[in-house]
Design a binder for these strands. Structure first.
Length: 286
DNA sequence: CGGGACTCCTGAGGGC
DNA sequence: TGCCCTCAGGAGTCCC
């Protein structure tokens, strides 16, 4: 499930391969995504050069030399992979179910010597071409909160944002306008590190807990990026490698198991809130 | 305005 | 083997 660390890893692997390279061809393989791929729009990227790739929240922004930007969101299952020219087949060392995956290819950008393919099983992702002058005002980016790893995501900021809220701290941290880039997994993990229950209401958080939450979020994200992200079911980076941070999960997907905190023997409980699973230790997260 | 429910989609995994 | 059901959860939209 791509959250900030997985999108950051994707950005790094894409940058290595396509930065400063010219798009030789654009092929729409299946236009059906969250927003239908616009053929006219995308075909105009032919012969353009990629100048810069940045990540904002869970979005990738691919800048071209003609003042256009490809805004990409990976949704739940979106990913990029490379195919070397002359090689007709996938590298099956990391795709075990080759045909099923290939069925969900959506867009191909051809470069000299290789293709870059966007693949998305569940079609929750999207790719849109946007004029760079309009990028800050697109509905996707305009209401995003601060980057969790930036200094703007501070105690003062977060306290002010949640001090009057009747929402749970879990929902607040998942809300992209409060802080952008977190998803279910890393919110669960950060709340565990903070010893705060996901059910606690924003307005009842103590200052010390708010401070702990900020530190925990930054720590968890940094460690996850260092580990190459987390691989759940089918996330791979664009080089086909899998992340390893899932081995460090303390609560996510550990329902019924024993808490890993030293000296705590609590059980991990799973609760559904707002349609999403919360995992937390009933003993040390209060 | 806030917040919850619903929606898009496909595959994995469990029960029988 | 296979059918049916539930679950995964990002983010936009709708409604109270």
């Amino acid at each position: 499930m791509p959250e900030l660390p997985e999108v950051e890893i994707t950005k790094i692997s894409l940058s290595k391969q396509i930065l400063h390279k010219k798009v030789k061809n654009v092929t729409i393989l299946n236009p059906k995504l969250r927003y239908r791929l616009n053929k006219q729009n995308l075909l105009s990227l032919k012969n353009k050069i990629i100048k810069k790739i940045i990540r904002r929240s869970k979005y990738l922004l691919i800048y071209f030399n003609d003042s256009n930007i490809l805004l990409v969101h990976l949704g739940m299952t979106g990913r990029f992979y490379f195919v070397k020219k002359g090689k007709n087949k996938f590298d099956t060392s990391f795709y075990t179910k080759n045909e099923i995956i290939k069925k969900h290819d959506h867009l191909k950008l051809s470069f000299k010597g290789f293709d870059l393919v966007y693949n998305d099983i569940r079609k929750f992702g999207f790719i849109k071409k946007i004029l760079s002058i309009n990028i800050e005002s697109t509905k996707h980016l305009i209401s995003l909160g601060p980057e969790p790893l930036s200094s703007n995501f501070s105690f003062k900021y977060l306290k002010n944002k949640i001090r009057n809220s009747n929402s749970s701290v879990k929902n607040l941290l998942m809300n992209q306008s409060v802080v952008s880039g977190l998803g279910n997994i890393y919110v669960n993990e950060a709340l565990f590190r903070s010893c705060v229950s996901p059910q606690r209401l924003g307005k009842f958080l103590k200052d010390m807990e708010t401070r702990k939450i900020i530190i925990a979020i930054k720590k968890v994200l940094k460690m996850a990026i260092k580990a190459g992200g987390s691989t759940i079911q089918n996330y791979h980076n664009s080089e086909g490698k899998i992340g390893s941070y899932q081995a460090n999960f303390k609560v996510y997907d550990r329902e019924g198991e024993i808490c890993k905190r030293a000296g705590c023997s609590g059980k991990i409980r799973r609760l559904i809130a707002s349609g999403r699973s919360s995992f937390f230790c009933i003993k040390c997260q209060t």
